[in-house]
Amino acid sequence: MATLKIPTPLRSYTNGLAEVSVRGASIAEAMADLTQKFPALKPHLYSGDGELRPFVNLFVGENNIKDLQGLDTPLDENARVILIPSIAGGKEIKHEGHNGHEGRK
Protein backbone atom coordinates (compact mmCIF):
# COMPACT_ATOMS: atom_id res chain seq x y z
CA MET A 1 0.00 0.00 0.00
CA ALA A 2 1.09 3.57 -0.59
CA THR A 3 1.90 5.82 2.34
CA LEU A 4 0.16 9.18 2.65
CA LYS A 5 1.63 11.83 4.95
CA ILE A 6 -0.95 13.94 6.79
CA PRO A 7 -0.25 17.59 7.70
CA THR A 8 -0.51 18.67 11.32
CA PRO A 9 -3.90 20.46 11.12
CA LEU A 10 -5.60 17.34 9.75
CA ARG A 11 -4.11 14.81 12.15
CA SER A 12 -6.94 15.20 14.62
CA TYR A 13 -9.06 13.44 11.95
CA THR A 14 -6.63 10.51 11.56
CA ASN A 15 -6.44 9.63 15.25
CA GLY A 16 -3.22 11.61 15.46
CA LEU A 17 -1.50 9.58 12.76
CA ALA A 18 1.10 11.47 10.74
CA GLU A 19 1.15 8.75 8.09
CA VAL A 20 -1.64 6.57 6.80
CA SER A 21 -1.44 3.52 4.53
CA VAL A 22 -3.84 3.82 1.61
CA ARG A 23 -4.96 1.46 -1.14
CA GLY A 24 -5.31 2.57 -4.71
CA ALA A 25 -3.69 2.47 -8.12
CA SER A 26 -4.04 6.24 -8.54
CA ILE A 27 -4.13 9.38 -6.43
CA ALA A 28 -7.92 9.53 -6.83
CA GLU A 29 -8.31 5.99 -5.50
CA ALA A 30 -5.87 6.62 -2.65
CA MET A 31 -7.76 9.77 -1.62
CA ALA A 32 -11.07 7.87 -1.78
CA ASP A 33 -9.57 5.22 0.49
CA LEU A 34 -8.31 7.91 2.87
CA THR A 35 -11.69 9.59 3.21
CA GLN A 36 -13.43 6.24 3.54
CA LYS A 37 -11.15 5.40 6.47
CA PHE A 38 -11.49 8.86 7.99
CA PRO A 39 -14.80 10.38 6.80
CA ALA A 40 -14.48 13.51 8.95
CA LEU A 41 -11.52 14.55 6.77
CA LYS A 42 -13.66 14.89 3.68
CA PRO A 43 -15.16 18.37 4.23
CA HIS A 44 -11.67 19.75 4.80
CA LEU A 45 -10.30 18.25 1.58
CA TYR A 46 -13.25 18.57 -0.79
CA SER A 47 -15.71 21.38 -1.43
CA GLY A 48 -19.45 20.78 -1.59
CA ASP A 49 -19.27 20.04 -5.32
CA GLY A 50 -16.74 17.26 -4.78
CA GLU A 51 -13.71 19.18 -6.04
CA LEU A 52 -10.46 19.18 -4.11
CA ARG A 53 -10.22 22.40 -2.14
CA PRO A 54 -7.75 24.84 -3.73
CA PHE A 55 -5.33 24.69 -0.80
CA VAL A 56 -4.86 20.91 -1.12
CA ASN A 57 -1.53 19.99 -2.68
CA LEU A 58 -0.53 16.39 -3.27
CA PHE A 59 3.00 15.36 -4.01
CA VAL A 60 4.20 11.95 -5.16
CA GLY A 61 7.76 11.94 -3.96
CA GLU A 62 8.90 15.46 -4.81
CA ASN A 63 6.49 16.00 -7.70
CA ASN A 64 3.25 17.93 -7.43
CA ILE A 65 0.46 15.92 -9.08
CA LYS A 66 -0.49 19.12 -10.93
CA ASP A 67 2.73 18.58 -12.89
CA LEU A 68 1.96 14.88 -13.40
CA GLN A 69 -1.46 13.51 -14.32
CA GLY A 70 -3.47 15.17 -11.56
CA LEU A 71 -5.80 12.82 -9.72
CA ASP A 72 -5.13 10.18 -12.39
CA THR A 73 -1.45 10.03 -11.42
CA PRO A 74 -0.64 6.33 -10.99
CA LEU A 75 0.74 5.03 -7.72
CA ASP A 76 2.85 1.98 -7.15
CA GLU A 77 2.73 -0.13 -4.01
CA ASN A 78 5.57 1.73 -2.33
CA ALA A 79 4.59 5.26 -3.36
CA ARG A 80 4.98 8.00 -0.83
CA VAL A 81 2.32 10.68 -1.14
CA ILE A 82 2.52 13.93 0.82
CA LEU A 83 -0.52 16.12 1.46
CA ILE A 84 0.49 19.72 2.08
CA PRO A 85 -1.86 22.67 2.44
CA SER A 86 -1.13 26.00 0.84
CA ILE A 87 -1.73 28.55 3.57
CA ALA A 88 -3.39 31.72 2.38
CA GLY A 89 -5.64 34.54 3.44
CA GLY A 90 -5.99 38.26 3.55
CA LYS A 91 -8.18 41.15 4.48
CA GLU A 92 -11.69 41.77 3.18
CA ILE A 93 -11.89 43.37 -0.24
CA LYS A 94 -14.79 45.67 -0.86
CA HIS A 95 -14.66 45.28 -4.63
CA GLU A 96 -13.36 42.06 -6.15
CA GLY A 97 -12.16 41.81 -9.74
CA HIS A 98 -14.51 41.67 -12.68
CA ASN A 99 -15.22 37.99 -12.24
CA GLY A 100 -15.34 38.31 -8.48
CA HIS A 101 -13.02 35.33 -8.17
CA GLU A 102 -9.61 35.04 -6.61
CA GLY A 103 -6.69 33.78 -8.61
CA ARG A 104 -5.57 30.51 -7.12
CA LYS A 105 -2.07 29.17 -7.12
Binding site: L10, S86, A88, G89, G90, K91, I93
Partner: peptide
Protein backbone atom coordinates in the same frame (compact mmCIF):
# COMPACT_ATOMS: atom_id res chain seq x y z
CA UNK B 1 -10.91 37.19 9.55
CA UNK B 2 -12.23 37.81 6.06
CA UNK B 3 -14.33 35.49 3.95
CA UNK B 4 -11.17 34.67 2.01
CA UNK B 5 -9.43 33.78 5.29
CA UNK B 6 -12.29 31.39 6.08
CA UNK B 7 -12.32 29.72 2.67
CA UNK B 8 -8.62 28.93 2.92
CA UNK B 9 -8.49 28.13 6.62
CA UNK B 10 -7.29 24.87 8.08
CA UNK B 11 -9.09 23.20 10.96
CA UNK B 12 -7.23 22.95 14.27
CA UNK B 13 -4.89 25.88 13.57
CA UNK B 14 -4.98 29.08 15.57
CA UNK B 15 -5.03 32.12 13.31
Amino acid sequence: PSEFDREWAQPFFSY
